[in-house]
Design a protein around this nucleic acid. Sequence first.
DNA 1: CGCTTTTGACCTGCGC
DNA 2: GCGCAGGTCAAAAGCG
Length: 194
Amino acid sequence: MDNFAPHVYPSTTSPTAVSSHLSLNLMPDNYTNHHHHQLDEHDPINLGLLEKNNSSDEVGLDHVSPTSSDQLCNSEGNNDLNSASGSTGKIHIKKGDKKIKKPKCAFQTRSQVDILDDGYRWRKYGQKAVKNNKFPRSYYRCTYQGCNVKKQVQRLSKDEGVVVTTYEGTHTHPIEKSTDNFEHILTQMQIYSS
DNA sequence: CGCTTTTGACCTGCGC
DNA sequence: GCGCAGGTCAAAAGCG
């Protein structure tokens, strides 16, 4: 994993705040109208998430205190979502090509359900067992034509109630469902967490 | 029938 | 160079 660590945004105990974070970060850059404070790398709480030199080379998510419930986002890098593996076949990145970093955001939420309806349509394309985690990590891709946004969903083994969703890239299209769905998400979260 | 999920194989990068 | 771990592909199965 030579990926840069995603920024993990603080998911809060307040569902409303979670909602706002989701709606903010799931929108493509050009849909983002407002800014909020992103935790920087000097934040001691997030160092564990941002540093890669841990015993586990996971993004460090397992090292996060579940109660801290963080949200990380790396918005630097290139937004060229089609460059990773443009054509079919097993070619991922051509040898010699410059590695292009995509923006990555990770959300840590406390929920019984792994898949949060964020308004986009996703197709699962893989699942892998993760070291030091008894739960597998699932890989999803946005099904919108031409949109190469990916996300990973993983449950923490240290706290089964915590789900980490990592978004990679930015959507090239508007959200497909009403953002009212966030209300539903939050309702679900509240139901399950009670 | 078309779309999604499952799952094993394959590829790549990194550390030793 | 080798082994490990993460990420992706693609065929088959499942489902509405």
